[in-house]
């Protein structure tokens, strides 16, 4: 095997990701020439450095993202927990307030409306609307409006 043929065969092994030292055609040549064997070993060692020296692009690209993601997850937890607590508190408050009488409503809000027949006036109906006039610190002023509607 000439040196040129050896080089061709060596590169072919590397292209096919095979070990040159285990190649049937190269092994005898390597066994006969220690310097060539050492040179091939040196090349393989350098290729090892190529594979290990620089982080793979996938890992390198994801590493900053992983860092940011870690930061974002922490920030999210820091923000979401208080929000969750606040939401829970609001829900409790609403539940408590919601169970209270409807009289405690915003001003102008209709509390109750009813339609009743005015027996005194057969062709009329009475509409009664109770609304909140004002509300301040648990004190609520209500008003009602009574109207008679002729049918």
């Amino acid at each position: 095997m000439t040196p040129a043929e050896f080089e061709v065969r060596l590169m072919q092994c590397l292209d096919e990701r095979r070990d040159p030292f285990l190649d049937a055609e190269l092994a005898p040549h390597l066994a006969d020439d220690a310097e060539v064997a050492v040179r091939v070993a040196d090349l393989l060692a350098r290729l090892v450095v190529v594979t290990q020296n620089a982080a793979p692009r996938r890992e390198a690209a994801s590493l900053p993202a992983a860092r940011h993601g870690c930061w974002r997850s922490r920030a999210l937890r820091c923000v979401s927990l208080p929000l969750l607590a606040a939401a829970l508190l609001v829900a409790v408050v609403l539940a408590v307030w919601g169970s209270r009488p409807t009289e405690h409503e915003a001003p102008g809000r209709v509390l109750r409306a009813s339609l009743s027949t005015d027996f005194e006036r057969p062709l009329a109906a009475t509409i009664t609307v109770r609304t909140v006039l004002a509300r301040e610190r648990g004190l609520q002023f209500q008003t009602f409006d009574k109207r008679v509607v002729r049918r």
């Binding site: 095979r18 050492v38 450095v49 594979t51």
Partner: peptide, 22 residues
């Protein structure tokens, strides 16, 4: 991975030298 990952580097004054050369 490929077999090259299991190749031992030849004797060097230090692994850093080899890496610097590469």
């Amino acid at each position: 991975g490929p077999f090259v990952e299991h190749v031992e580097a030849p004797v060097r004054a230090s692994a850093i030298e080899l890496r610097d050369e590469v």
